[in-house]
């Protein structure tokens, strides 16, 4: 009898595995073609050195070992200001955007006055194209502001306030999806716990820190991981705010990479990195970020508050 059941289980397991294999085949094929296939060349380029062939046709491709990586590392260390900018953007997200989103989510979860209306307003930047918001924002802090106050220049043009304004914009449009997820996580809180806490004389602030946040903590951790993963690709809306002309003096790494990639060539020039060097730079980021994200996730989950 047990043997029969085992055989049944075994067959079921096998059929499960076959089903899995069949179902993931197509998406994996798409992934292999559209991601691996397309990017394989740029990954390989990170290890190659291109020179114009003297014959006039094609390139002399040689194995570059870690040369491109060394040059990419030099580039990164020369541009440490970009690292600072990217990290500042990250810290602003973590310590301004997320806390504010949690507070707003708390208001909505508690269904305080007009929460339905505020929910809509907070989600607006998610619905309306960033193109529109950045255009309107540029007018508000620029032309409209100078017309109203007679100031010489707007916040984006004044060198003292440019970066701060960029950060402000990033926070201003960030709430949408964060508030959505946080308020839903909060919605899963058992009401009886809240009621008994309130009966015990807990005030709103204590409730927020001891009950609400712990429930939303797993969501916060996941959002953090996604943000960490995107540190080096986050363009911080610089393209939307400053357009094609570029604004390298306050470039984040993601923006810098994006701009350089659009003009990079196979062969290195005295001032421009080649495609190979940019690819190597991208891979360096991956080597740094993947373990960092994993580590951070373990750390945050362990050290985070729990509902108990």
């Amino acid at each position: 009898m047990a043997e029969k059941r085992n055989r049944l289980h075994h067959r079921r397991d096998r059929s499960k595995k076959i089903f899995f294999a069949i179902m993931v085949a197509l998406p994996l094929l798409q992934f292999a073609v559209m991601y691996v296939g397309v990017n394989a060349n740029s990954f390989i380029m990170a290890f190659q050195h291109y020179e114009n062939a003297a014959s006039g046709k094609g390139f002399d491709i040689t194995f570059a070992g870690i040369d491109n990586f060394q040059e990419a590392w030099t580039l990164l260390s020369e541009k440490s200001y970009m690292l600072e900018i990217s990290l500042t953007g990250f810290l602003v997200t973590m310590f301004i955007s997320y806390p504010l989103a949690l507070i707003f989510s708390f208001y909505i979860y508690k269904k305080y006055p007009f929460s339905g209306f505020f929910k809509t307003v907070l989600f607006l930047p998610q619905i309306i194209s960033s193109l529109i918001f950045s255009t309107l924002f540029k007018y508000m802090v620029g032309t409209v502001y100078t017309e109203l106050t007679g100031a010489a220049m707007g916040f984006l043009s004044d060198p003292d306030t440019t970066f701060g304004t960029v950060l402000f914009f990033n926070v201003w449009v960030s709430f949408g999806i964060n508030v959505l997820m946080f308020s839903n996580a909060m919605g899963n809180i058992d009401e009886s716990v809240v009621e008994s806490a309130q009966l015990d004389g807990v005030n709103i602030i204590q409730e927020f820190f001891h009950i609400t946040i712990p429930s939303a903590w797993p969501t916060v951790v996941s959002c953090t991981i996604i943000t960490v993963a995107g540190i080096f690709t986050n363009q911080m809306y610089l393209y939307d705010l400053f357009g094609d002309g570029g604004k390298f003096e306050i470039a984040s790494i993601g923006y810098f990479l994006y701009q350089k990639a659009s003009i990079a060539d196979m062969v290195k020039t005295p001032t421009e990195p080649s495609m190979g060097i940019l690819s190597a730079l991208g891979l360096i980021f991956t080597f740094i970020l993947v373990p960092t994200s994993m580590l951070l996730k373990k750390l945050l989950t362990k050290l985070g508050p729990s509902v108990d």
């Binding site: 740029s42 993601g254 690819s279 991208g282 980021f285």
Partner: peptide, 8 residues
Amino acid sequence: MTIPTVGS
């Protein structure tokens, strides 16, 4: 999610 793919 972490790799910035360049020049694809």
